[in-house]
Design a protein around this nucleic acid. Structure first.
Lengths: 201, 201, 201, 201
DNA sequence: AATGAATGAGCATTCATTCAT
DNA sequence: GATGAATGAATGCTCATTCAT
């Protein structure tokens, strides 16, 4: 039984990997099931055994990716380091990972656009984002927001996550590539400074 | 002659409007040329008289939208008000506009995703973004960056534009809608504070 | 009135020339009315003023070409020279003309194929061919067929015309071009010899 | 494996037959893929599984027809009979076949016209014709050409093949049908007599 | 479980023809 | 007579999905 499970998991992983590569390169709509079949090494019927439609495959892929990302994030947040360091680690790890796998950023944009059209995917992203914002807000709070700044903290968290997505997007599309890790960390610093700085008015 | 030009312009505008509505609702790939034809009030052949392919139509639409946006931005920047006010005006106008036309944000995401696949569209966005960043950088500089902070200013401008795109994206996808104008302005304030705050380390 | 007629004739000739060139190069079905419009120097509406459909244009073109060819043939046949010389002249003139205007042969094949589908064109060719065969038969008879060979003469005429069409066809399609005039005249000689030779059995 | 091959061959044959019928009746350009689909008994996708475009289908059809024809010719030429009889057999079999299947002649004209536009088809015909001429030349030589007449023999072979094509063409287009077998054999006799007759000049 | 041949609804695009000006 | 913008039916081809083996 466990062996069964393993094979299923392995096959699905195999397919996810193929789909990720194909979607990243060609985009969801320009990707043919046959392309994914070819990339996966399975047969057409085989693929449809594990995913009953292209949409379900995309949805599953989003789910898997966001789960991974969430776990990776949690791992960093669970560390013993001071909040500021955890934040930096988070940012750098994220940027570093994308820099090494630029396709991931491309894929993310593709799937994000898909969220507009496919409700399940939208829900996935939505939930993920909410958790993300909460964790960041907590982190920022811990970093030195006085209780009087709670609102600011939450707003800053939203700003932070938006910043990340927006910069990833810019980075994937920009023809003249820039150093994502650096840019992202600089931006984060500015943001953090802004949160901790005394109110202007 | 001028009349000719006018008709051509009018027709193209008419088609752009139809395409914008359809792309916003259904997405580029789920949009049928027939849908746009229907929405435009022209005939199929008529549409193809002005745009020789679906792709060219999308490209033209991106061009037109970015041109409009750039001009709107310039108009705000040309005002006599102090820099800080111009920035606020810019942010609020942008957010206000989207709030009144939520489809625009949706459309923007769609077209942004298209940029991955269609080179001409990518170029349009790229150029537009570069100009955008430059203008914002100039504005931030004017707002009080000492020359010693030039680098920060540019980084902050990049952060700012990323923030805008990212938040617009979040806003379109979020199921629980939030006040875009408020969130964006708060985030902007944090960012500005961060730029003007004394270096932390 | 006569001036009117002249203009009409001139315009039609102008269009025929354009259509001939376009059909020769692209074939009837791959030719767009716009191509012919462009080649003719007229406007779309202008072309349709003189020919009310693509098919009518093709039909008119066939008619005009066959009329010309028939007249050219008649001119040669009307000469005072001995029959054998007239035949040679006929063959050489025909081949010479095609060699100088290879498009004509190509066009002929195209229109011949069209005859299968367009009844009017088929009728044109049919009538033309009948006359052609009759004239050739008369010529061959004059060249020395005894009355006892009348049947042979007619058969030979049919053979002769078939030979011409077939060789023209081969010539247009052959990738390694050959000397049409020479080949055709040699073949004619063989045929003539065969008609004049004593019955074998 | 052999079963696989067989099915593929059978399907292709099935499609060729349908295409031949449809092209013969309507012509290549007036034939709709749907017509062929209907005639073949397959589905649209099924047809496209075996031929990836209309053009490829036509090309394949030409190839198949010429291969068959070449084999049929070879079969006749391989017989033990004297050369003259083999020639007669060849001519009569060819004509007889067409008379029983008039569509074949019609189809041949259609495909011949296609050769003007589709390079692969042109090449097929070209190669076929070359072989045809060579075989006929050899046959004529065997029939009694002295070595002094070698040139004439080749010319006569070219004349012969042209004659066949031309007469088939005439026969398909003629409204008043004639006896193809008879006409063709008579013409052949004249030609042969011409080759064997003493030089005139 | 796995295969891949077969299905058929769906779609972008074309192009002969028309007609208001 | 002439123009060319506008029409819309027509068509080759695609591709997600199915199902007999």
């Amino acid at each position: 039984m466990a062996v069964e499970e393993d094979r299923v998991t392995a096959r699905r992983a195999q397919i996810f990997q193929a789909a990720a590569a194909v979607f990243a390169r060609q985009g969801y709509h320009n990707a043919r099931m046959d392309d994914i079949v070819k990339a996966s090494g399975l047969s057409k019927g085989g693929l449809y055994w594990y995913f009953k439609s292209k949409e379900e495959l995309a949805t599953g892929l989003v789910h898997q990716m966001l789960t991974h990302e969430s776990e990776a994030m949690q791992a960093v947040l669970n560390s013993e380091a001071p909040a500021a360091e955890r934040l930096e680690h988070l940012v750098r790890a994220f940027a570093h990972d994308l820099t090494k796998n630029p396709d991931r950023a491309s894929l993310a944009l593709e799937l994000l656009a898909l969220a507009r059209t496919i409700p399940d995917i939208r829900t996935c992203f939505d939930t993920h984002h909410e958790h993300f914002v909460e964790r960041i807000a907590a982190l920022l709070m811990e970093m030195g927001g006085s209780s009087a700044r709670q609102l600011d903290t939450h707003a800053a968290a939203l700003a932070f996550t938006s910043l990340i997505d927006g910069m990833m997007l810019r980075w994937t599309l920009a023809k003249s590539p820039f150093d994502l890790e650096n840019a992202l960390w600089e931006a984060t610093e500015v943001l953090v400074r802004g949160v901790q700085a005394p109110q202007l008015r």
